[in-house]
C-alpha cells in the first residue's frame, strides 16, 4: 500500500482545517441573546376571563376543516375534545381543585379553564431538532409545518417540552399536526379572553393586568421567558403548574445539543490528524521491520 507523502498529508489536513473555520455565522450565534420576536404577533390568553364556551375550539375546527371528536352522552352526540390530538389543535381543559364547589376564578381560584395549543416558541425545540427543516419559525412568530419536507421521524414530538406535536397514526401518508397560528380562535372568543397584538404589547398588557388586580392573578406571564419565550402567553388565577403547563427554565432548548454539534468539526480534524499520524508512525515501523527481516534473510540465506 502506498503511503501518503508528507506534503499531501499536510495540504489535505490544511484544507480540512480551513473548512472548519468557515462557519462564522454559527460561531457568532454563541452567547448571543435569544431573538425576542417583540414585533411579531403574539396571543394573550387570560384564563380568568375564559368562560369555557369552546367557541375557539369550534372556530379552529371549521377554519382548519377538522372533524369533531364525537361522543354520545345519553343518546346525544357532543364534540368533546379533551386532549390535543391530530384533529384537536386546541382544547379547553378545566382544572378543579378537589372538593371545590364551582366558584368563579378570581374570587376564589380553586378552578380554572386553560386553553392548550402550540406555544409558538421564539426558539422552538421542534424546529431545532427537525433534520429537514419541515418545521420553521416565521418572522411573523408562527411555527409552521411543511409536510412536503417531513420524513416522519417524529423527533419533534419527543423534543417539544410542551408535548404539542401530534401524529396521524392511522394514515398511509401521515403528517405532524398542530396549531398553525391562523388565530381563528382569537376572533371567535366572545369574552375577550383571547387577544392578539405585537408580543411586546401583549407582555406589557399582561403585566398591566397583574399590577391592576394582583389578587386576581398569579404573578407570572407564562410564555414570557419559558424556554426562551413564546408567542402564546397565558395569564391565570391558579398556578400554571396546576393547569398542566410544565415549569421550564429560560434556557433555550436548542442549546442542549448545540455544544455537541459544534464539536464535530474539531472532532473530524483532530481524529483525522491523530489517525493519520498513527498510521504514518506504524508505516515507518513496518518499513524498518521489513528491512531488518530482509537483511536477516540474506545472512541466513543459502
Amino acid at each position: 500500500m502506498k503511503r501518503l507523502s508528507r506534503r499531501r498529508f499536510l495540504t489535505g489536513s490544511g484544507a480540512i482545517a480551513g473548512a472548519a473555520l468557515l462557519p462564522g455565522e454559527s460561531r457568532a450565534a454563541v452567547g448571543a441573546a435569544p431573538p425576542s420576536y417583540d414585533d411579531a404577533i403574539a396571543v394573550l390568553y387570560d384564563a380568568t376571563r375564559c368562560i369555557g364556551c369552546r367557541s375557539c375550539v369550534r372556530a379552529c375546527r371549521s377554519f382548519n376543516e377538522l372533524p369533531p371528536e364525537e361522543r354520545e352522552i345519553e343518546g346525544v352526540a357532543f364534540d368533546v375534545p379533551t386532549r390535543l390530538s391530530e384533529d384537536n389543535w386546541t382544547v379547553i381543559q378545566l382544572y378543579r381543585q378537589e372538593g371545590s364547589d364551582g366558584q368563579p376564578a378570581g374570587a376564589d381560584p380553586r378552578w380554572s379553564f386553560v386553553k392548550k395549543n402550540c406555544m409558538h416558541c421564539n426558539v422552538p425545540a421542534c424546529v431545532s431538532v427537525c433534520p429537514v427543516a419541515a418545521l420553521q419559525k416565521t418572522d411573523a412568530g408562527a411555527v409552521v409545518y411543511y409536510e412536503d419536507r417531513c420524513i416522519g421521524c417524529r423527533y419533534c414530538m419527543l423534543a417539544c417540552p410542551y408535548q404539542v406535536p401530534r401524529y396521524q397514526w392511522v394514515d398511509r401518508m401521515p403528517r405532524v399536526r398542530k396549531c398553525n397560528w391562523n388565530r381563528a380562535c382569537v376572533k371567535a372568543c366572545p369574552v375577550g379572553a383571547l387577544q392578539e397584538g405585537s408580543r411586546a404589547e401583549m407582555i406589557a398588557e399582561a403585566h398591566r393586568r397583574i399590577d391592576e388586580s394582583p389578587q386576581r392573578y398569579v404573578d407570572h406571564v407564562y410564555g414570557e421567558h419559558e424556554a426562551g419565550g413564546a408567542s402564546y402567553l397565558i395569564l391565570a388565577g391558579v398556578s400554571h403548574a396546576k393547569l398542566g403547563l410544565p415549569s421550564l427554565p429560560t434556557r433555550l432548548r436548542s442549546t442542549y445539543a448545540e455544544p455537541i454539534l459544534k464539536s464535530i468539526p474539531g472532532l473530524i480534524i483532530g481524529l483525522g490528524l491523530f489517525l493519520g499520524g498513527l498510521y504514518r508512525m506504524e508505516g515507518r515501523r513496518r518499513a524498518v521491520e521489513a528491512e531488518r527481516e530482509e537483511r536477516a534473510g540474506k545472512e541466513t540465506g543459502p
Binding site: 431545532s128 431538532v129 433534520p131 429537514v132 427543516a133 419541515a134 419536507r149 454539534l261
Partner: peptide
Amino acid sequence: MWQPHSVMFE
C-alpha cells in the same frame, strides 16, 4: 434539505 442544527441530520 439541510438543517445542520439537528442531531438527527447528523
